[in-house]
Amino acid sequence: MSPGLPSARTAAIVSLLLVGVALSFAFHATAAGSEITYEATPVEPGEDPDPVAEASSNVTDLDERLSDTADRNREPVRTAAATGSFEGALSSELAIALDGAESRYARYDGRYYEWSLSTGDETANATIEMRPTDAESVFAAVARPASESSADVRRIIDEGTANGSGVRSGLFRRDGAYYAVAIESEAAVAGQIASSFAGFALTPVGRGYAAVGLGLLAYRYREPTRDRLLTVRRAAAVAALAVPLALVATALFETGSPARFVIGPATATVVASGVVAGACVASSRWRSLVGVTVGIGLFATAAIAAPLGPIGFLFGPLAVLFGIATGAVPFGYGYWFARPAADATSPSDSAAREDRDAGP
């Protein structure tokens, strides 16, 4: 055996362990920076209504909603704006664009309107009412006193731009002045949501990697000169470490629904089971490979479905597929450490090596 090979193998195991530990806190790292930046824009009734429509849920921005609607399908809204009302059928495109537009006021073509939309439950017919109104009336009706709002809202108004958590956008009034408080960048919020989701998904992956690294390191420490470190049985013991490791990490570092004690550990176990699959392939145990893959998939799906109910039967297989994909790294380790460090020179040497390394 090459004297440099054991140190290379040990370095690979330690690297996997360190990566696993780092990923185990991926969600905590992404959630720590999940505060949203809000902006307070001073507004006056006679100015551009866009900031008000963007900030207040009581004012529907029809221009924004209809921006992707074909011009011919906007006719009902134009008719209501010109005559005060429209009653008739809406195109499916317009009906989708106006879905949920239940505010008291609307902004359309640079003006404010009192707004009402009534639709039939089973028909495409609708009644749209639009009566022009002045900005002062809208501001008086929808603005909320800043003094009665949260401390975050008052701080955003004071500073102009500030981070906040759970802030409700809207139009606020303070000392006779009005401020439209809204998210500074929708794109940044989308990025934060995507980052938090990635952190949530990678956390059990890290714990699966850490379990494999810890198990391999224990065997490596126990038998540093062993040529074939893993058997299928040993690989299964390594993968099983994912359950207690993930449970302890969940209890120590996470809060929330009790379902977290199932979803995370189940996914981590699927990830770690890649080491068993790798060992099966290395030893050409194809039936065991199929059994492990199907068995761990069914186990994880059932475990996830137990606390989540019927939706778990949708989320469970997705978690299993994600775990199998990210389990490619443990698979590589299982394959590598289940093979001899140096190829046997003859079939008899190979058989002798298999007999020697088949121990527990």
Rank of each mutant, 00 (worst) to 15 (best):
A190T: 14
D175W: 03
S169Q: 12
L217A: 13
A211N: 10
V205R: 02
L216M: 04
G213R: 12
G166V: 00
R174N: 03
L171E: 08
A194N: 10
L202F: 15
A218Y: 07
R173M: 07
G199D: 02
A218N: 03
L202Q: 05
R220I: 01
A162H: 05
I183T: 15
Y219I: 13
Y178M: 01
A162I: 11
E186R: 15
G213Q: 05
G170E: 11
A211G: 08
G176V: 13
G208A: 00
T161M: 06
A188P: 07
Y179D: 09
G170I: 06
V212P: 05
G191D: 12
A211E: 01
A218H: 00
S195Q: 09
D175M: 06
R173T: 13
S185H: 14
S196T: 14
N163T: 12
L214N: 02
T203C: 07
V181Q: 00
G206V: 00
G215H: 02
G191T: 12
Y209K: 08
L214K: 01
T161F: 04
S196I: 07
A198N: 06
R207E: 00
S169N: 09
F200E: 06
A194Q: 08
A198C: 03
A182S: 14
A162W: 05
L217P: 04
L216Y: 01
V181Y: 06
E186D: 11
G191W: 12
R220G: 08
V181S: 02
V189G: 13
I183F: 04
T203W: 03
A210L: 13
E184H: 08
A194G: 10
Y219F: 15
S195Y: 03
R174F: 06
F197W: 15
G206R: 00
Q192D: 12
S165F: 13
L214D: 03
L216C: 02
A218M: 07
R174K: 11
L214R: 02
V205W: 03
A187G: 10
G160M: 03
Y178V: 04
I193H: 05
I193G: 09
L171P: 06
S165M: 10
F172A: 07
A211F: 06
G160S: 03
Y221H: 12
I193Y: 11
R173L: 14
Y221G: 13
S185T: 06
A190Q: 11
I183S: 01
F200N: 02
